[in-house]
Design a protein around this nucleic acid. Structure first.
Length: 601
DNA sequence: GCCGTTTTCGGCCCGACTGTTTTCAGTCG
């Protein structure tokens, strides 16, 4: 969110403000209103408005011009006025005034666990605290514990939160979190008291990074399960421990939550804790429209006395034996966890228009792989053997080109020799897997390619990738990549934004224009399946694929184990609503050969 | 601030845990 605002400030005068930049401002307003102690429903209205804009597929400028903003559910008169002012003038007086009325240190204090708007207000009013540093000092001097509503424990917790806030705020790669989660899940399932166990949350939704782990268990006896959970190796701190819920923190900062529910409620709880928040809100609203109240406890009549939990315990509601039955109870087809982001999946499920999402078993091969000829760690034979062991019909080689000197990129001479090696290997019949010759060819600063067309024409396919001059302006970078896509020798674009999740920001590039150019030139955009990359981002795929963009799920493997990266790519592809028809490497060998030949003609 | 087959006011998703209370507010998801 903060990043978005910086972008907004920088380009406010250059160009029309985008819907995502407007959404960032609305979210920021919500935070500020919360700190002011405004009506929480007003705060929520701004957040809802931001979500509506983020999910908007139509051009915001057209909506404004036609005066149709208020036709969007969640946008009323006041928000429409503010959105219009932001879009047309690049600024918003209301936002400026609000910002200047609140000390920035108060916003920063929200990062500390157990500290919300109300407590921050008290700290500010009673002790004059308006920054994390001042809060730390007050805690150390024992002044916070003396306040009404605070105590010794709160003070200690705040101090710990301040000290650890960097580690706590850190997110974790989905792949890393999964590695921690799988043994815990297996262990839970092996406990005699446990009937069912699943992980939930953003890990189950397949989000590229996750903040914490969520485990859900149906168990007859709670205490032994909680005890087992909080004594896992690596647990540094038990942050909560109740009868049905426990939270622990690992040394890495990763937090894990355990929730125990009765078996009858398991699938309601699984759905609830798989989220996302937006998906859940929409599902609850749908339930309410049908006279039902939905929670992690169940789906019960909204009318009548008692809480949802009490009604569920009296079996007053609908019983389900799977998530499919839960969706069916609301007139919906089963929605895969990866789609539960509140981005149109409920409407599609109602209309029976959910896609049949791609699965790992649909893959018949993979492109964009390295060998020790450049910066890989295995030979051509070893990599081909690994591809054969996966049952793949084909394996696409793509070592670096000479401009990637740091990666030992191949020059023309070495590339031609490699082509000969591959041809010899294919004709030898040593492997059932066919090897495609290729290159990951550098896109040079001006958009020209690192090999000339005659050299590229000798290959089966070409991946064009940017590996240097990341600091070019958005216009330069966009033009550079488009020029590469316009070269008929290029088959696919590698890692579109160059991002490394949690490590390196994407370079500035206009994704929309790149997608337009790829469509216009019949070029594939890769979904780089390396768990650090997952690039192009899943958020762009749904719309792009609807327009006909072809995807290739590429492992970017540098050793045999790296081929399994495709599993991460499949998850990202599913989040992008992709079916096997959208992805080149689900097709049989002969079809792929035809496709590649046609593209290069 | 938004919304409406209960329509211009009065709701707005819901529950667990913690710490501080002595019946509950705040935070979190």
């Amino acid at each position: 969110m903060r990043g978005g605002l910086e972008v907004f400030a920088k380009r406010a005068f250059l160009d029309a403000v985008t819907k995502n930049e407007i959404a960032d401002v609305l979210n920021e307003i919500a935070v500020l209103l919360e700190l002011k102690g405004e009506n929480p429903f007003k705060t929520r209205a701004y957040q809802t408005g931001a979500r509506v804009l983020e999910a908007l597929e139509e051009d915001i400028g057209a909506l404004i011009a036609d005066g149709r903003l208020e036709s969007l559910k969640g946008i009323g008169e006041a928000l429409a006025q503010k959105i219009t002012e932001l879009h047309t003038t690049g600024g918003l007086k209301f936002f400026d005034n609000l910002k200047s009325s609140i000390e920035p240190g108060l916003v920063e204090m929200l990062q500390i666990p157990s500290l919300g708007a109300k407590k921050i207000k008290v700290l500010n009013a009673k002790l004059g605290i308006s920054s994390i540093a001042q809060l730390q000092k007050a805690c150390e001097e024992g002044r916070v514990a003396e306040l009404d509503g605070f105590g010794e424990k709160s003070q200690e917790k705040l101090l710990a939160g301040i000290r650890n806030r960097i580690a706590y705020a850190k997110r974790h790669l989905n792949a890393d979190a999964r590695e921690v989660a799988e043994p815990i899940l297996a262990g839970l399932r092996a406990l005699p008291q446990v009937e069912r166990a699943e992980h939930a949350g953003s890990l189950r939704r397949g989000l590229e990074t996750v903040g914490d782990l969520d485990f859900l268990v149906a168990a007859s006896d709670h205490e032994p399960v909680v005890e087992w959970f909080v004594t896992r190796p690596g647990v540094q701190e038990i942050t909560a421990r109740g009868e049905t819920k426990a939270s622990v923190r690992f040394a890495s900062g990763l937090q894990a939550d355990l929730r125990i529910v009765p078996a009858a409620q398991f699938f309601f709880a699984l759905h609830h804790f798989t989220g996302s928040k937006d998906h859940n809100v929409q599902m609850r609203q749908r339930a309410l429209a049908r006279g039902l109240s939905m929670s992690e406890w169940g789906l019960v009549p909204a009318e009548g006395e008692g809480t949802a939990k009490e009604k569920a315990e009296q079996h007053a509601g609908i019983q389900v034996k799977s998530e499919s039955e839960l969706f069916a109870a609301l007139g919906l087809a089963f929605i895969a966890p990866e789609l539960r982001e509140g981005l149109g999946e409920i409407t599609a499920a109602e209309a029976g228009e959910l896609p049949r999402l791609i699965e790992l078993s649909d893959l018949r091969g993979a492109f964009h792989n390295h060998t020790n000829a450049s910066d890989g760690r295995a030979t051509l034979n070893e990599m081909t053997a690994a591809a054969e062991a996966l049952g793949w019909e084909y394996f696409g080689l793509a070592d670096h080109s000479k401009a990637s000197f740091q990666a030992n990129g191949l020059n023309e001479e070495r590339l031609l020799k490699q082509i000969g090696d591959v041809q010899a290997l294919n004709t030898s019949g040593r492997f059932k897997t066919h090897v495609f010759t290729g290159t990951e060819c550098d896109v040079l600063k001006d958009g020209s390619l690192d090999f000339d067309d005659a050299t590229l024409a000798q290959l089966d396919y070409v991946v064009a990738s940017v590996h240097n001059a990341f600091s070019q302006s958005e216009d330069e970078m966009t033009a550079r990549i488009i020029r590469a896509l316009e070269n008929p020798q290029v088959t696919m674009l590698g890692h579109l934004t160059g991002r490394l999740l949690l490590r390196r920001e994407p370079y500035a590039v206009n994704v929309g224009k790149i997608i337009d150019a790829a469509l216009a030139n019949g070029v594939i955009i890769e979904l780089n399946a390396n768990p650090w990359r997952l690039d192009m981002d899943w958020r762009h795929w749904k719309r792009a694929a609807e327009r006909g963009l072809m995807c290739s799920i590429n492992p970017d493997a540098h050793d045999p184990a790296g081929l399994s990266h495709v599993a991460h790519g499949i998850i990202a592809a599913r989040k992008g609503w992709l079916t096997k028809e959208n992805v080149l490497n689900t097709r049989p060998l002969a079809e792929v050969q035809t496709w590649l030949a046609k593209r290069r003609k």
